[in-house]
Simulated scan of single mutants.
Amino acid sequence: MPAASARGSLPVAGLLSIGQVLARLTPEFPTLTTSKLRFLEVQGIVTPMRTESGYRKFSQGDVERLRIALQLQRDHYLPLHVIRDYLADRDAGRDAQHPGEQPPPSIHPHGRRFSRDELLKATGARAQLLNEAISIGLLPASESYPESAVGLLGAMSALDRHGIEPRHMRALRQAAERDAALVQQALAPLLHRTDPRSRARASEAGPELARRLDEVRSHFLKAALERILP
């Protein structure tokens, strides 16, 4: 049953308060708190209804979604984005394989590999541009390249047409490495642990922190361009 959201005058018969949900789930999940339930709401696992006064009201379907999410976190250490996708497939009536039966997701997925010629063809980049990117370390010298190289070289090719060359990318790479160090520092308490749960939490939080850093960087760039462009 998909999560639903509504405001205004709502029939509350059969719906549960957050305290009632907590009382139902804590026998199975003793460490569960109201803060954790609110966090799962923020992460899109459930979207409870609200009364006119703003109080959360959970359906039986919400409780089941929470139970599934908590079980997958506890028993399989799965990140929330995997759980969220699984629930979305269930909601849509798709044949969703239980994520606990699948190999743990990797933050470094292995996709198609591209030869040098295939990479150039896929991006429309000049061979010299690829050579320059390799010579300054933006791309490795390799017999084949991952899908991520297609996006990177394609972007560099578009910039190259405007006179922005690979050598100008060095500062961007250095800034990215500083960002990675900042994320590593923020996740240090989790990365220093060896249990699978902490590793899964770090794998989930890392991309989210990177996305937030991208948002801040985009804001600053947009503000700077507004000062430059008419």
Rank of each mutant, 00 (worst) to 15 (best):
R94H: 09
S148A: 15
L209R: 09
P79K: 05
E226I: 02
E132K: 06
T123N: 05
T31Y: 09
S5D: 08
H76L: 03
T194K: 07
A210S: 07
G137H: 08
V82I: 09
R227F: 07
E64D: 06
M169H: 08
R56H: 14
S5M: 15
G61H: 01
A224S: 12
H168G: 11
T33W: 02
P230W: 04
K36N: 04
D160M: 05
E64P: 08
E177N: 14
R173P: 13
Q97K: 09
A122M: 10
I107E: 13
Q174F: 06
G151D: 15
L138W: 14
S9Y: 08
V183A: 12
R197N: 01
G154H: 10
A205D: 01
T123W: 09
A96L: 08
A186P: 03
E215C: 12
M1F: 01
V82C: 04
D85T: 04
F39W: 14
L130E: 00
I136K: 10
A210C: 10
P230V: 14
H81R: 10
K222L: 15
H81L: 11
H219K: 09
P166R: 12
M1A: 04
L172G: 09
E204W: 14
L182Y: 12
A92M: 01
S59K: 10
I68L: 06
R74I: 04
G111S: 04
N131M: 06
L15R: 06
R90Q: 10
G163H: 10
G54M: 03
